[in-house]
C-alpha cells in the first residue's frame, strides 16, 4: 500500500500527533478550515468524524458536536466533497471515523470508491465487527484505504494479534475501557497496558487515543507507542474558539510542548 498513511509511518515512528474533529462542527463549512490549520500547525494526521445520531461510544463532548453538525445539515456525501476540496491544499493523511450505519446506507462499495476519489487514506469504523470487515476487506484494499481497528486494555493478547493482522495503517489503542473524553492523566494500569502493547511486536504502529488532552498525556502515550490521538479536548477547544486558525495553532503547539 502506498497511501499517505503508510508514507507517514515510514518517515516518522515517534511523537506522531493525530487530531480528531467532528465534520461540520462548529459550522458546516469548517471542515476544510480546520484541516488547513492543522497542517499549518504541524499535526501529522487528521481524523474526521462522520456524525451519527446515536454515537454510543462517545462521551458528551463528541455527542454534542455530532448533534450540532447534523442539525446544521452535515452528512457523509457533503463530507466527501469537502475532503475532495481540501485536498487541493492539504497533504496530511486523512482518516474518516464513523459508525457503520451511515456508511451502510451510502453503500460500502460506493463509500470506498468515493472516499478514495476524494483523497481519504483510511477509515476507522468502531462498530464494524471483524467478521463483517473480513467480508468487505477486498473492497477497502482495492481502494487503497487503510482500515484501522481498536484495541482496549481488556483485549486479550491473542485478539490484539488477530486485530493487528486485519488492520493496516496503524492500530488504535483505546487508553481505557471508556467512552471518548478528556482526562488529566494516566494510571499505572494504563501505563502497563501501553507497555504490554509495545512488547507484543505488532506489525502496525500504535497510536493511543481516548483521554489525551494535554502535553503531559501526549508525552506519556508517546513513550510507548508511535504517537497519540487528541479528540474531545480539541473539539472542546473548537466550541469555544473565536479564531479557528490561530486557536488551532496555539492548541497544537501546547500539546507538542515539552515540559
Amino acid at each position: 500500500m502506498n497511501n499517505r498513511l503508510s508514507q507517514l509511518f515510514k518517515q516518522k515512528t515517534k511523537n506522531v500527533l493525530s487530531i480528531f474533529f467532528t465534520a461540520g462542527f462548529p459550522s458546516v463549512n469548517d471542515t476544510g478550515v480546520i484541516a488547513r490549520a492543522l497542517e499549518k500547525a504541524g499535526a501529522d494526521l487528521i481524523e474526521i468524524g462522520i456524525p451519527f445520531s446515536d454515537p454510543i461510544a462517545d462521551g458528551p463532548v463528541i455527542q454534542q458536536s455530532s448533534k450540532q453538525a447534523l442539525d446544521q445539515g452535515m452528512n457523509l456525501k457533503l463530507l466527501l466533497e469537502q475532503v475532495k476540496q481540501l485536498r487541493s491544499e492539504v497533504t496530511l493523511p486523512v482518516v474518516l471515523m464513523g459508525y457503520i450505519n451511515p456508511i451502510l446506507q451510502y453503500g460500502i462499495g460506493n463509500f470506498c470508491r468515493d472516499a478514495r476519489a476524494a483523497g481519504v487514506d483510511g477509515v476507522i469504523l468502531p462498530d464494524l465487527p471483524l467478521r463483517d470487515y473480513n467480508e468487505h476487506a477486498t473492497l477497502f484494499h482495492a481502494n487503497d484505504l487503510s482500515v484501522i481497528m481498536l484495541v482496549t486494555p481488556a483485549t486479550s493478547d491473542e485478539r490484539i494479534r488477530l486485530i493487528d493482522q486485519a488492520s493496516s495503517g496503524f492500530l488504535y489503542a483505546v487508553s481505557a475501557s471508556s467512552t471518548t473524553g478528556a482526562r488529566a492523566g494516566f494510571t499505572a494500569e494504563q501505563e502497563d497496558y501501553f507497555r504490554r502493547l509495545a512488547g507484543l511486536g505488532l506489525r502496525n504502529p500504535v497510536l493511543v487515543g481516548f483521554g489525551i488532552s494535554n502535553a503531559a498525556t501526549f508525552q506519556s502515550a508517546c513513550r510507548y507507542g508511535a504517537g497519540a490521538i487528541v479528540g474531545s479536548a480539541f473539539v472542546s477547544m473548537l466550541r469555544n474558539s473565536t479564531n479557528l486558525e490561530s486557536d488551532i495553532i496555539t492548541f497544537v503547539k501546547a500539546i507538542r510542548s515539552v515540559s
Binding site: I56, A57, I100, P126, D127, L128, P129, R131, D132, M149, L150, V151, T152, A154, T155, R159, I163, V174, S177, S178, T179
Partner: peptide, 11 residues
Amino acid sequence: GGAYIPEMLFP
C-alpha cells in the same frame, strides 16, 4: 442480528 459493537464492549 449479529453484534455490531465497539471493541470496548467486546469482552
